[in-house]
Amino acid sequence: MTSEFISEQFDPGSLKKNTKDPRTLFGLIMSGIAGTFMVMAIIPLIIILLYLLIQGISSISPSVFIELPPPPMVEGGGFGNALLGTVIMVSIGALISVPIGILAAIFLSEYSGGQIANWIRFATNVLSGVPSIIIGVFAFGAIVLTFKTYSAWAGGFALSILMLPIIIRTTEEALKLVPQEVRQASVGIGANDFQTVLFVVMPAAIPAILTGVTLAIARAAGDTAALLFTALFTQFWPNWENKLAEPTASLAVLVYNFAIVPFKNQQALAWAAAFILVLLVLLTSIISRLATSKRQF
């Protein structure tokens, strides 16, 4: 009886998708537009990576890693000093920001759940939105004007402020993923607070924390605006005898300086340096993907 009732009232054919129905057409068109936008978003990435690959690889030779930047119109040369300068300044940045960042994250996730933590989280997010050029201006005022010289220290200081928010955020996320039971177990067998945090919670979160540090390093290595007038640029090697208190070259500033000159040999070096920077970013992104996809718990 029920089947008769349905067949009288209901035509199963109406369940089929009617392709001429304006609602269906509208959906198809919108899907098409969204799909086109998706493709449009990926195209620039592919074009940029392709250009970097072609231009970068053709300009790279072993000598670019160890030689000094060439004068205009002179073949050869490299960006050994810029590579070393980037390594030095990123290391200074990491030495400042990693301990402070991890301690701050520990405070946020282990010691405070209240209003202060929310304010500090807010400040961290706002700090990560401060343009790097403003951080450069700040480091210029704080370090360069105080010590009356451009230096690797000023550059490293500026980079450390760029790295801080990234490290805090990733470390806090990592610490939050450690289950509460682990802490309770540690306290239960008589550990102090700092023992619990340092010897139980931290080791469990270490892979994710390292990922955050790597991402921060990649971001700092590629940043130019913060170094433009803190470390400046130089054609020479970093000067250890002067305790690095001199203008210091970096890969990022080298790309900028050599991109806006009309000399082919320097432009080729700019492409090579850009290739190295993007390779660094690519590798760290992929590694961080792999590292965080495996959960500790």
């Binding site: 990435l45 940029i48 250009y51 970097l52 990649a218 971001r219 290595a221 590629g222 940043d223 130019t224 605006a225 990022a252 790309v255 900028y256 991109a259 700019a270 492409w271 850009a274 920077l277 993007v278 970013v281 690519l282 992104s285």
Partner: peptide, 10 residues
């Protein structure tokens, strides 16, 4: 993640 200066170069 691509550095700003690389976009500029391109």
């Amino acid at each position: 993640a691509i550095p700003s200066v690389v976009y500029g170069l391109w």
